[in-house]
Structures are given as structure tokens and as C-alpha cells.
């Protein structure tokens, strides 16, 4: 048990209506996951310390608890406030090894080197994989991705930014490991989209 610094930023900014807020956030996320490429509206229900975004913090507060280790990227570990906020509001243990994480929070996706450093689950239990929440600034103004797969009628488009380096190749490798693989949640201001591991990227015409 680590002592939590007595700052208001840590204790405040959680759900004021945990039951209602988490249900609304979850339904938006469930729809996003079920229909990759669609952008779902997220309510403004949390106020975390920067640089953790309201969207990403609402998602982690909805999903994480004492049973789910959380990993934070370098941008989120610069100060202890974010770690303390997550511990206080979710009870989730924060881990340093990405492959131990049930959830990963990434504030600077462009600096994320490898998706396969996270847990991909096993062939017997592909569900035991890391779900990565990427904080992005946009879902529609980045480089366009064309998506196919379950949840998508024909094709869908999504243009999130920023994304991890060599994203298209990384995602193809992730798809190739199916049913193992990570799932991505793209948390943008006021909205969310998702790329479950089942989604395929269509190669752009050269």
C-alpha cells in the first residue's frame, strides 16, 4: 500500500454517478467494438489530471478494477498524479510490465513501439490479452484506414491520429495472430472508436 498524496486532483474528477456513467460509457464502447469504424459519442463524466484525457479516463474508470492490472505509457508516468488517480478511482494495480496488463493507457501513441509487447492471450484463452486504450486527438482527420471484418458491412473508414509507428504493418501482424491479439480502443475528445483484433486493414491502392 503506497500512500496517496493528499492532492485534490487525485481524489476528484471521478464519476459523480458511477452506476449511470459507467453504463453509458460502456454502451458507447460496446457499440464501437461491435461496429469498428463507427464513432460513438462519450459523455463528459470525468476530470482527470493532465495529460490523461477525459475520454480515456472515463473508459478506464468504466473497465478497470482491482482484478485488472493497468499499464501506463511514459507520458502518463511522468508525474505520480495519474497513477494515483487511477488507483484511487478504480482500485486497479498499476504494473510496469506491459505483458502483465489487462488494460494499457497510452497518451502518446506515436511513441508506442510495439503492440506485441503486450499480452496477446493464448491460443486456448485468447481473451487473456491486453486491451489498449490509445488517446488520440482525432478519429476523422488522420490518415485514412479502410477496415473490413466482423461488425462491418462491406467496408468502413476511420482516420485516427496519432497512431503507433508502422501501424498498418503492426496491425496486420496482430491480425495474423488471431484469435490471439490485442484490441484497441481509440479515445478521442468526446468520442470513442475501436479496432478489435478481428478487424482487417485493406491495403491502400499503390
Amino acid at each position: 500500500m503506497t500512500a496517496i498524496p493528499q492532492t485534490n486532483a487525485v481524489y476528484e474528477g471521478g464519476f459523480s454517478d458511477p452506476v449511470g456513467a459507467s453504463q453509458v460509457v460502456f454502451r458507447a464502447l460496446m457499440d464501437a467494438m461491435a461496429r469498428p469504424g463507427t464513432i460513438q459519442v462519450l459523455p463528459d463524466v470525468t476530470a482527470p489530471p493532465a495529460p490523461l484525457s477525459a475520454s480515456a479516463s472515463a473508459l478506464i474508470a468504466t473497465l478497470a478494477d482491482a482484478d485488472t492490472p493497468v499499464w501506463l505509457d511514459a507520458a502518463l508516468t511522468k508525474s505520480s498524479a495519474i497513477r494515483d488517480w487511477i488507483v484511487f478511482h478504480t482500485g486497479a494495480p498499476v504494473v510496469s510490465n506491459p505483458s502483465d496488463a489487462a488494460f494499457a493507457l497510452v497518451a502518446a501513441p506515436q511513441n508506442l513501439s510495439a503492440l506485441n509487447g503486450f499480452s496477446l492471450g493464448t491460443q486456448e484463452f485468447p481473451d487473456r490479452s491486453t486491451t489498449i486504450i490509445l488517446q488520440v486527438s482525432t478519429l476523422s482527420d488522420g490518415a485514412q484506414l479502410t477496415l473490413e471484418g466482423p461488425g462491418i458491412k462491406d467496408q468502413a473508414q476511420l482516420a485516427p491520429d496519432p497512431l503507433p509507428q508502422h501501424f498498418e504493418n503492426q496491425w496486420r501482424a496482430n491480425r495474423a495472430a488471431f484469435p490471439r491479439g490485442v484490441d484497441l480502443i481509440l479515445a478521442a475528445p468526446g468520442c470513442v472508436a475501436a479496432l478489435p483484433r478481428s478487424t482487417r486493414l485493406v491495403r491502400r491502392e499503390a
Binding site: V19, L29, M33, T62, A64, D127, T131, P179, S198
Partner: peptide, 28 residues
């Protein structure tokens, strides 16, 4: 609300998301 406590709902919600991500796979 809806009988289940929030911790149980979270656990079920996580399973639902994994189920959607791996269609047809039975998530314990």
C-alpha cells in the same frame, strides 16, 4: 440498478468486449 453490483457488471462487460473481439469464442 439492474440487481448486479458494479464490480460484477464490470467483469461481465469486460467479457462481452472480448467476446465481440473474438466472435464465436466462449469467454470464461
Amino acid at each position: 440498478f439492474a440487481y448486479l453490483d458494479e464490480q460484477t457488471k464490470r467483469m461481465i462487460r469486460r467479457a462481452i468486449l472480448k467476446g465481440i473481439a473474438v466472435p464465436g469464442y466462449q469467454v470464461p
